[in-house]
Design a protein around this nucleic acid. Structure first.
Length: 256
DNA sequence: ATGGCCATAGTGTATGGA
């Protein structure tokens, strides 16, 4: 089973990219973030025609998440039941016996802003909910995929000195991510040998991608039952080179 | 040179992203 996550930064703009990518990478489950579409505008038929079922939770202009699957999707939950949130950032569903959570963690804008406070509160609430979900789904396994908007370590940052203490890299954010992992989740990417300076996001400005000035902020976290089954995790930089790309690249994990 | 983009709403320019 191949599972993946991709922040598409507008599914309206990126639908052709998505369809091309699925053709070249026929993963079983794909979590999308930043669809930026209300549910009435979601391109269901195009995705069905590509061989995928899909569930989604969107809003106007910002945020929006979706889960695509080749296999039947059941037990869909929108949002974190423990956190009242206008913003559509969480979608959970069961596929092939595995519990999937698609997450678009708030960006946080800058340390010491209201948005940063919201990000930390949101992550604390996610941890509370995940603690329960981990128990409920311990046997079958739980995967939480998404744009975490956190670079876990300095090696996930192109210029750790410049980014030190900044949003996406601050100690409090990293502690929040560690807090999630302490529930028994593994960063699938770091289970395997990877090249130095591997990133999943590059700024559109300053020739970020061409100079590989990026961050690794998109992650696939796996519970123990799934980590045992995980045989590979990669970042696919290819679609970042296409015309009018998303600023994020997909992350793919293979489960036996 | 220390800045350079992009999507959205909406029609000039602000906001958010990361």
């Amino acid at each position: 089973m191949k599972i993946a996550t991709w922040n598409v930064n507008s599914l309206k703009v990126r639908l052709p990219h998505l369809l091309r990518w699925l053709e070249e990478n026929p993963v079983d489950v794909l979590c999308l973030q930043e669809t930026k579409l209300t549910d009435d505008k979601f391109p269901i038929s195009e995705i069905n025609s590509a061989g995928y079922q899909v569930v989604f939770s969107g809003q106007k202009t910002y945020n929006g998440v979706a889960i695509l699957s080749r296999l039947p999707i059941s037990d869909v939950v929108k949002n974190n039941p423990r956190y009242s949130d206008e913003q559509q950032r969480i979608l959970a569903a069961t596929v092939g016996g595995v519990r999937f959570i698609c997450a678009y963690v708030p960006n946080g804008q800058a340390v010491d802003t209201d948005k940063y406070v919201y990000k930390l509160a949101w992550l604390a609430a996610l941890r509370e909910w995940l603690a329960e979900e981990m128990i409920t789904h311990a046997d079958q396994g739980l995967a939480i995929l998404g744009d975490y908007n956190i670079a876990p370590e300095d090696r996930d940052v192109h210029d750790p000195v410049a980014w030190a203490g900044q949003v996406l890299c601050s100690d409090k954010e990293r502690a929040a991510l560690t807090g999630l992992m302490d529930l028994g989740l593994t960063d699938s990417y770091r289970m395997f040998e990877q090249l130095d300076k591997s990133f999943s996001w590059w700024d559109y400005r300053m020739l970020g991608f061409q100079k590989n000035k990026g961050l690794r902020i998109d992650h696939i976290l796996l519970s123990a039952a799934l980590a045992k089954r995980c045989t590979a995790c990669t970042i696919d930089r290819a679609p970042r080179k296409w015309e009018q790309p998303s600023d994020h690249a997909p992350v793919i994990a293979t489960l036996s």
